[in-house]
Design a protein around this nucleic acid. Structure first.
Lengths: 352, 352
DNA sequence: CATCTTTACGATAGCGCTAATGTTGGGCTA
DNA sequence: TAGCCCAACATTAGCGCTATCGTAAAGATG
């Protein structure tokens, strides 16, 4: 077989045209199922393309079409099951729409986030789905300026004026807190991360309101146990559980004996369980424990942990659809803010 | 300020050239720090580019340079901590080398894998890191044909003749099995997935050899408990643990009382623990349990699970470096096959 | 002061593709 | 059979960038 590619690796449209005896344009129309080619030549061309292993050059195609059929996803780390589920679902949705996914990780670092945004801009993406690291929104303004559709998830930046999809943290904390209060808990402690995220602030605020609705006092010194921020976001590690173990142990050793714990992450419950077990405090008899996130191991904890199923798949689905609508120009010009209510999962840790 | 972009969204090199009064060529040289521009004009150009928010068009750049500075990663699902760690590390390494990462998921489906490969080829990637779904290698030959550097991880396809990096499954199963045998176990059961992967075959084979080295018989009907393949790979779920629970319960209810379990995934140990607990079989007093993977929850199981730390980060690091070497043409033409030995982590579940 | 070199830039071409516009010839109608 | 239409192709141009070569002016050299 003659080398149609003139020594180049991949055959081009022109190579195909030379072989078939037609012009590159016709080949392009044939392969992309555009009109203007007879059925027989179309078949011939497709067969020849297959035979030569022709793969269209996306660089050229992207250049002329102005699109790469790629959306970017910026999240802090995919070791967090929430984000891995989110990214998985985005990939699935994008793939079905003929888009591929560029993954950029920020590792909870503002600097890395800035870098990720920069790389996203330089990658010629059609759109971007992002869970921002921080409260400062101006890191994202270049994306807006560049006219690249942006949809935020998980953490809101209202100043940006872009679509936002998230799990409903307020509804979530209300569901979990009310569940233990309904069982008669009078002294509930919220064990959560000590970070200045809007999500966490919303949780604390919602927690406070739930207590007050039930006529219970809220004193931050008594009702809050804050876990120092995690140190590494690179790998799936259990520092969360460790830190929670330490914080819970301290609290218990200071003689505090709440009758219920509500936590901001299932991993905290893992550490909390150990602290309680060591002190022979029984769940649920002596204390109720309510998780957050429905991590895969929670069903197998002893006792099985009541927790909150976060609808991250649904968040991802809606965010991706919205982004694709924006990319394809089929979106209305309204700015959507949706918070999807999570689902309470009651297991033995809050059953009496 | 005059609209230099003629109504287009993003300013181009030409726009910049018009503003500064030079040619696009000079602008390009200035911005990319290539010689042929005086220091003063270079500074001027950069300042102007900054002012106008100029972002180079990657599509055009990729077309002329023939590279997109992007590597693809094909894995089955990122809900598996192994793969999420792998992808994270690849992203980190790639990013440091100035590359971005395109994520493609195959969900353990041969069909989806084929589609992912197809999309990878059409995405104009510079290279590809992949954990194949199946044993059939011909799905990957188009990648080789297209001349795109490919590095496999986790699952080997020797016929392809490409670099391969993995954790050492044989060494791993030897480490875990020998650990329980060293404690005097005489009747060990391997609880593993019932799938035709080379990794699992290697585990079973290594398990058999370990038994025989210790003068113990290996009868598949007694020493093997196989868990049906997982049903969904989309989300982080605990079907693994469920299935293992069922298989272990069956085994125990048939009256089998092995003195040690070695499992192929920490999630199996989670289900196994429950099956044992329900039958008041104590770990480690009545039976030893050895995990696999060092999932973040294992330290907090009761008793803490001995397990195997899989060096997925190291695998990712080496694979990425090798791929980048291949892309940049700095690799020798040898085909590397490396298996990195995992690290045994002894906890209470195998302590007497 | 003629010649050579160097610096700083411009002019041109082309990467591989698609969109827009031409061109041809065969079939149809009146 | 003149006139028209339309399917099936070709021709041309251009997306935004970089590489290559060309050129004018300034400086170096004897």
């Amino acid at each position: 077989m003659a080398d149609v590619t003139n020594g180049r690796r991949q055959p081009t449209l022109q190579d195909l045209a030379n072989v078939v005896g037609l012009t590159a344009n016709t080949i392009s129309r044939a392969l992309n199922d555009r009109p203007g080619v007879s059925a027989t030549t179309r078949a011939l061309i497709k067969a020849e393309a297959e035979r030569l292993g022709y793969v269209p050059n996306v660089h050229a195609r992207s250049l002329v079409l102005g699109s790469r059929k790629t959306i970017g996803v910026i999240v802090t780390n995919i070791s967090n099951p929430f984000f891995s589920d989110l990214v998985s679902e985005v990939e699935l949705q994008a793939q079905e729409a003929g888009y591929t996914v560029l993954l950029l990780l920020s590792y909870e670092s503002a600097e890395r986030e800035r870098d990720a945004i920069d790389r996203a801009l330089r990658s010629g993406l059609d759109g971007l789905i992002a869970a921002p690291v921080q409260e400062r929104f101006n890191a994202w303004t270049p994306v807006i300026k560049a006219g690249i559709p942006l949809v935020l998830v998980s953490r809101e930046l209202p100043e940006l004026g872009v679509d936002f999809y998230s799990t409903d943290n307020e509804a979530g904390i209300r569901l979990t807190t009310d569940a233990v209060l309904a069982l008669g808990a009078k002294d509930v402690v919220l064990l959560d991360e000590d970070m200045p995220f809007s999500t966490i602030r919303l949780r604390i605020e919602g927690f406070r309101r739930s207590l007050e609705r039930h006529g219970l006092p809220f004193d931050p010194r008594h009702q809050l146990a804050l876990v120092p921020p995690a140190r590494s976001f690179r790998v799936s590690q259990s520092w969360h559980a460790d830190d929670a173990y330490r914080v819970a142990s301290d609290l218990l050793d200071r003689g505090r004996r709440p009758d219920a714990f509500v936590v901001g992450d299932d991993y905290y419950a893992l550490g909390l369980y150990r602290a309680l077990r060591e002190r022979r405090i029984r769940v649920p008899d002596d204390v109720l424990v309510m998780g957050w996130g429905n991590h895969p191991f929670t069903r197998f904890m002893e006792p099985p942990l009541s927790t909150l199923l976060l609808p991250f798949q649904e968040v991802a689905r809606r965010a991706t659809r919205r982004l694709l609508d924006r990319i394809q120009g089929t979106a209305d010009d309204q700015i959507i803010t949706e918070r999807i209510v999570p689902e309470l999962i009651i297991r033995a840790s809050t059953t009496r």
